[in-house]
Amino acid sequence: MNDRDFIIDRYKDLLTTYLNGKNETALYKGQQFSRKLIEQQISPEDVVSHHINVLNDLFPDMTEEMKDAFDFLLEVMIGYGFAYREHQSLRTRQRQLESEIEVAASMQQTLLISDVPTVDSLDIGVKSVPAKKMNGDYFNFVKDDKSISVAVADIIGKGIPAALCMSMIKYAMDSLPEQRMQPNLLLENLNRVVEQNVHPNMFITMLYGLYDTDVHKFYYAGAGHEPGFFYKAATDEFEDMFAKGLVLGVSRTTKYKEYEKQLGPGDMIILLSDGVTECRTSKGFIEREEIVALIRENMHKPAQEIVDSVFHELERLQEFELRDDFTLIILKRMV
């Protein structure tokens, strides 16, 4: 007996049981049975056809008109069969696409991954977590003899296009080694690349900085990026690290301004993406002060533990549902 015959038999059983007892148990079984039908990919017109056959068996004196009426129903159900089969095939395709995206995402991660450099004088912590499969935030460190450069970027736009754009940014930055020491020039060059190569409705914000490990100065420039924080240990105060500048890709001729901060022992540079400040909780958006408070609470820990703790706390506040990519970087000057 093949599956098909089995199904017809079973249908007949269930229907007979119901007709004899007309109770809820039989109906429940019928409902369960429909799951089985769907599993076996039996389409709606087939179900109607089985029903007709079973009725023919059970009630041999069914009138011709009733039989004809069932034929009409069968014809009507063909349209549902159409939709059902398309649904099946689209579902298969969706699964394929999902697994392709998964592969692409892990490829992207390996392409874009940046080592976090280790130097004696700086304690560095990084946490970057994508909201979806692909990360629209990007960070990058480059270590030289006397300096460490750091970039944090965020694509305005989500998902796969944003991620592809990130890869472009990475390779554009790699191809601009001469500008690495001059944050404003680096952004100006990068801006031209983005303006020429990226779709006009996609923008990129970036903060790029260079930490001079000899004199402990941080030089930076920003392109419309979420301001970071600067923590001054001497006064025990946090201040916003504004860096004025248009987002990348708007105008070819944008100029950027270079800023600098002198760091004393225990001072911290905190860089982030707007996914950190735009955390939405049941009480509304997280305020920048709340982020500062969270950092302050954890400030006594090593940099990596600070960013981890802040992330876990924000994740908890958002009920573990990340709406935007999250990137938080802390550079803390050691004594």
């Binding site: 349209g79 159409f82 939709a83 059902y84 089969r85 398309e86 649904h87 095939s89």
Partner: peptide, 13 residues
Amino acid sequence: GGLGAGLPGVKRL
């Protein structure tokens, strides 16, 4: 629009 009809539907039928 997503009724599953048309040529792909014919192919499957």
